[in-house]
Structures are given as structure tokens and as C-alpha cells.
């Protein structure tokens, strides 16, 4: 067995097991951490496919940014998972039945023979000096420039929508303005009142 195959199987089994753990562990923080493991192992598998750039982007973006945000939200919200699990046992048989039926149907239609390794042979290895990043950049800015630009517009819409839906100016909220705080002078805050001494 070549070394790549061994590495592939090792990483895939870790991937499948951690994916299972994401949906089975009770603690949401653990689930998020298992998802991090999932992304990491997927990145390793992508490296086997010689897509170095995408593998690194997966780690940087998903593990580095998205999952950290995720963990923040999970820790801040303190989700009570008990109500979510209500009726789990009641719906389990029906759910399993539907899932099983769908699985059998999909296997019957798609099967292994149509999407097996025979129908998709491995691509020839790249020549030395082949740059993944360069190829990707060239494709994005030439062949796929139109979809690429539309994707950029979609992100712009997401920004506008998020701001339009969440930004509120509340006149009643009290906040500090450091600029005005440091400019404050004694006269603004302190009032010297001369009072007559009271007689006993």
C-alpha cells in the first residue's frame, strides 16, 4: 500500500469520527472544537489532492476566523440544549425510517458504480514548478471573472443587509465619549457654592 493511501485512510477515519462527534456530543463547545478537527483533517486530505492553496485557506479562514467566532457565540449565548432535545426519542423511529428510505433510494439511483473511482480516474501529476495559487488566481480573474464579481456583490449585499437590520441609534442609551472625557475642565464639573454657616 503506498504511503498516500495510508495517509488518506488515516485522515478520513479521523474526519468521519470527528464529524460524528460534532453531532453527538452534548456540550456545544466540544462540538465546535470537533468541527475544528474536521476542518483540519479535510485540509490535510486536500493537501493529498495537491491543492495547497485551498487547504491553507480552509485552515486560515474556517479554523482561524469562522470557528473562533463560532466559539465566541456559543460561549456567550449559553444555549440551553434541553428544550432542543424534547421529543427526540419520540421522533427518532420516524426520522430513522425516513433517513434509511432516502439512503436506500439514493444508493439505488446513484450507486457506487456511477461515482466510484473507475468513473473518475486520478488526474495526472502536476509538473515541477506548478503553482496552485497562480493557476487559481488566473482562473478567477479570467475565465470566472463574471461569477467572481457577482460573488463580491453578494457580499456587499450581505454587509448592507446586516447593517440595515441591526444598526440602531438609541438616544436613551448612555455611553462614554473619551474625546469629551479628556477635554473636561474643572469648571465643567465642580461648582463652588458659598454657603453661610448655619447658626446653632
Amino acid at each position: 500500500m503506498p504511503i498516500e493511501t495510508i495517509i488518506f485512510y488515516a485522515f478520513s477515519s479521523v474526519l468521519v469520527l470527528s464529524a460524528l462527534a460534532v453531532i453527538t456530543v452534548r456540550n456545544p463547545v466540544y462540538a465546535a472544537l470537533f468541527l475544528v478537527l474536521c476542518f483540519f483533517t479535510s485540509a490535510a486530505i486536500w493537501l493529498l489532492l495537491e491543492v495547497e492553496f485551498l487547504a491553507i485557506v480552509l485552515v486560515l479562514v474556517y479554523v482561524g476566523a469562522v470557528m473562533v467566532l463560532f466559539l465566541f457565540v456559543v460561549m456567550m449565548l449559553d444555549i440551553n440544549v434541553e428544550p432542543l432535545k424534547e421529543g427526540f426519542a419520540r421522533y427518532l423511529p420516524v426520522g430513522l425510517l425516513v433517513a434509511l428510505a432516502m439512503l436506500v433510494e439514493m444508493l439505488a439511483v446513484l450507486g457506487i458504480k456511477r461515482f466510484g473511482p473507475e468513473s473518475f480516474p486520478a488526474p495526472p501529476p502536476h509538473p515541477a514548478g506548478y503553482s496552485n495559487t497562480r493557476e487559481l488566481g488566473e482562473l478567477l480573474y479570467t475565465e470566472y471573472v463574471y461569477p467572481f464579481e457577482i460573488a463580491a456583490v453578494i457580499l456587499l449585499v450581505a454587509i448592507i443587509a446586516a447593517i440595515a437590520l441591526t444598526l440602531r441609534r438609541r438616544p436613551e442609551t448612555r455611553y462614554q465619549d473619551p474625546g469629551r472625557q479628556v477635554q473636561v475642565r474643572k469648571e465643567d464639573r465642580l461648582r463652588v457654592v458659598s454657603m453661610e454657616a448655619e447658626k446653632r
Binding site: Y146, P147, I150, I154, V157, A158, I160, A161, L165
Partner: peptide, 25 residues
């Protein structure tokens, strides 16, 4: 003329409409 463009156009429309529906927040 391409499924990628078609899908991206659809999402651009859909995301704008979701936000519009919720505009009166």
C-alpha cells in the same frame, strides 16, 4: 449561460429580498 452564474444571480436576488422583508424591523 452557466449554472454558476445562474445560482449566484438567484442568491443575489434572494438575499436582497430576505433583507427587504425584514426591513421594518
Amino acid at each position: 449561460a452557466n449554472m454558476l452564474t445562474l445560482y449566484l444571480g438567484l442568491e443575489l436576488l434572494a438575499l436582497s429580498t430576505y433583507a427587504l422583508v425584514a426591513l421594518d424591523r
